[in-house]
Design a protein around this nucleic acid. Structure first.
Length: 356
DNA sequence: AATTCGTGGAG
DNA sequence: TCTCCAAGAAT
């Protein structure tokens, strides 16, 4: 580690904590002043908040904690119940790892989360950020928490010009220098709140910032340019055709996706493979769950994943007496809500119901 | 080290 | 419409 470009004042951390005490946000997972943090709730919230906004995670957090109040309750639940409850939140490996982690903590640690970063890192779904966050917020132990907010704050305060993600180790080292011994949990949350509400990606509210007087980026007038980021690859478009098939009972044919990879373990409307080119008639017939006179519905379902766009045509048919030969599960239309349907598949369902 | 993994809101 | 992006992890 090189010498910081400029020194932080001795009272940097106390000033941030002073700001935090006066701007504390009331979030569903946040212990109120004086309350003892519940490691289960801290862990659950941190998993849900990975790459996810507070408004998106909040209703899921309420639903999970009401249904599964303890880590043992969550561990005892079938994975499929967890996937159904997680449906719509995205990054479904989080849900699978959440369940694995709960089972590990319940079975091997008597339901108690470890309070050290190294042990936390051994658990599924817990990486450097989450291990530090749990250590600091749930157990009140010193740890340097570095998420996207902290990276932005640090890159600005020290006017770090090197682009992400390569500069991450340097930002972490600088963040560690600032981390105080006192109030580790509050400091971690204060850093993230500062980034989320004041030191924002666009139009940072420097007038409200407790660190504005020593922020190197602000002094240079480059706060809106930092942190610099490497250009990201553009997203290709993949195309496919989904099969909306009803049986004589009015149930829809669904399938369970492979346990790993995109939407792993989730439920889907059967479809052709999603390829760079639209499937031809032969490919559609090849993938069809039954050999039927499929009629194509008007329009297309568009969805954007983390790394590609998807355009899905929809074809529909009614299965006759041979409907039992189709591979998959038949679900009554009014019970689709009980399925682990990710958002893209909810779009397909809505499209089919609107046009079929 | 570079990819793969979702989603919905903001601008 | 389109880009960016939000409390990252696993491989």
């Amino acid at each position: 580690m090189t010498t910081p470009p400029h020194a932080a004042p001795e009272d940097a951390a106390p000033r941030l904590l002073f700001w935090y005490d006066r701007n504390r946000r009331d979030l569903p997972w946040r212990a109120k002043p004086g309350e003892v943090a519940d490691p289960y709730r801290v862990w659950l919230s941190e998993i849900m908040l990975q790459q996810t906004t507070v408004p998106a995670a909040a209703p899921y957090f309420r639903a999970f904690t009401e249904r599964w109040p303890t880590v043992r309750d969550l561990a005892a639940a079938p994975l499929d119940d967890v996937l159904v409850a997680w449906a719509g939140l995205g990054y479904y490996a989080r849900a699978r790892n959440l369940h694995k982690c709960a089972q590990a903590v319940a079975a091997e640690r008597a339901g108690c989360f470890p309070d050290k970063e190294a042990a936390l890192l051994d658990l599924p779904g817990i990486g450097a950020y989450t291990a530090a966050a749990i250590t600091a917020i749930a157990f009140g132990r010193k740890a340097t928490v570095v998420d996207g907010n902290v990276e932005r704050v640090i890159s600005r305060v020290f006017a770090v010009e090197d682009p992400l993600p390569g500069v991450k180790p340097k930002l972490r080292a600088l963040a560690a220098i600032l981390t105080p011994d006192e109030r580790p949990g509050d400091y971690a949350q204060a850093m993230m709140d500062l980034g989320a509400t004041v030191c924002t990606p666009r139009k940072p509210k420097c007038m409200l910032c407790p660190w504005s007087d020593w922020c190197a980026a602000r002094a240079a007038g480059v706060q809106e340019q930092l942190p610099r980021k490497a250009a990201k690859a553009d997203k290709p478009t993949r195309r496919g055709v989904a099969f909306w098939l009803l049986n004589p009972d009015g149930a829809v044919l669904l399938r369970r996706r492979a346990e790993d990879g995109l939407l792993g373990g989730m439920t889907e409307v059967p479809s052709t493979p999603w390829a760079g080119h639209a499937p031809g008639d032969a490919e559609i017939a090849e993938s069809a769950p039954l050999d039927l006179p499929w009629r194509s519905l008007p329009g297309v379902v568009r969805h954007t994943f983390s790394h590609f766009h998807l355009e899905l045509g929809v074809v529909a048919a009614r299965a006759g007496d041979g409907w039992r030969k189709a591979e998959g599960l038949w679900v009554p239309v009014d019970r689709l809500g009980g399925q682990a349907l990710p958002s893209v598949m909810m779009k397909v369902v809505r499209h089919a119901l609107a046009h079929a």
